[in-house]
């Protein structure tokens, strides 16, 4: 007898095929990344290593509160753990962000289409991450840093609203001194002790030398896309070489519930990563 709905006969015959059944994951590390973002490192409770592509998403849940779609924030090249970062926004994220090491989260996934690494290998790469857009792109950034020889020049532009909003401070410190990445950062509004660049993310283009043969990945607030695309057009980067990581409301993550639909595409299964030429004529996409 099921305690919660008084049913006598849930059929477990369908468990393998039930796309809504999550799996348990244990929090092995929980760090407050900013005042509103919490960074979790998770391991599947079963001990299995989750196979995923950088850029894929998870439906993350806590029973009684609900599920939210979250991009994977670490690379599959890392151990058998994976990272997610959750911003405290609503009911589910507020409940999740009260959790600590040893607590459980429930996940479905990996879901959707991530970055096609075969298209990126042996090319110059530029990742442009605005705000919380650094979280899903970190899965690719880590991948490139871990397998650096598979890629040519690697540039990374990161913009945050102000220095207190910067995330992954250890990573930032490493990237600043690393010779493996041409790293540039900016904040919209500086602070007294901020000595770096101030201004929107497109101001970073003049700090680097991006060539037209670069594959570019963009993730950030919708407003950022059109300004970045305009800069890339000036440089002469082909739109098919530009990849965007889109955000939408997603309730099911499996292409059924309709919330993330853009024209005939579902962001949760056809994306969240799209090449820009796939969606540039798709109204409502950007």
């Amino acid at each position: 007898m099921c305690n919660c709905c008084s049913s006598n006969n849930h059929s477990h015959n369908y468990d393998e095929q039930n796309i809504f059944l999550p799996k348990e994951a244990k929090i092995v590390r929980a760090v407050q990344a900013t005042a509103t973002e919490r960074h979790f490192t998770l391991r599947m409770a079963s001990g299995e290593k989750m196979k995923f592509d950088p850029g894929q998403i998870l439906e993350v849940s806590l029973f009684g509160f609900g599920e939210i779609p979250i991009g994977l924030a670490s690379s599959p090249t890392r151990e058998n753990t994976f990272d997610i970062v959750i911003r405290t926004v609503g009911r589910v994220s507020t409940a999740i962000n009260k959790l600590n090491e040893g607590d459980s989260l429930f996940i479905r996934g990996p879901l959707g289409r991530g970055f096609d690494l075969n298209l990126l290998r042996n090319h110059n790469i530029l990742v442009i991450a605005g705000g919380i857009g650094l979280c899903p792109t970190r899965s690719l950034i880590q991948y490139i840093m871990d397998r650096r020889s598979e890629f040519k020049k690697f540039s990374l532009f990161y913009g945050a609203k102000d220095p207190s909003q910067q995330m992954f401070l250890e990573d930032l410190a490493n990237w600043r001194k690393s010779n493996d990445v041409d790293f540039h950062e900016t904040v919209d509004r500086g602070s007294d002790d901020w000595k770096g660049n101030t201004g929107v993310i497109t101001t970073l283009f003049k700090k680097s030398s991006i060539t037209p043969d670069t594959k570019v990945i963009i993730c950030g607030p919708p407003i950022m896309f059109k300004f970045v695309i305009a800069e890339l057009d000036k440089i002469g980067v082909a739109r098919k070489d530009v990849y965007v990581d889109l955000e939408r409301r997603m309730k099911c993550g499996v292409g059924k519930c309709g919330h993330c639909q853009i024209n005939d595409k579902y962001v949760c299964v056809d994306g969240p990563v799209f090449s820009f030429d796939e969606i540039q004529n798709l109204e409502e996409a950007i």
Partner: peptide
């Protein structure tokens, strides 16, 4: 879709 009891859960296909 899913019934839960604390952190235990099962599907509801019936």
């Amino acid at each position: 879709l899913v019934c839960f009891d604390g952190n235990k859960f099962e599907g509801c296909i019936n």
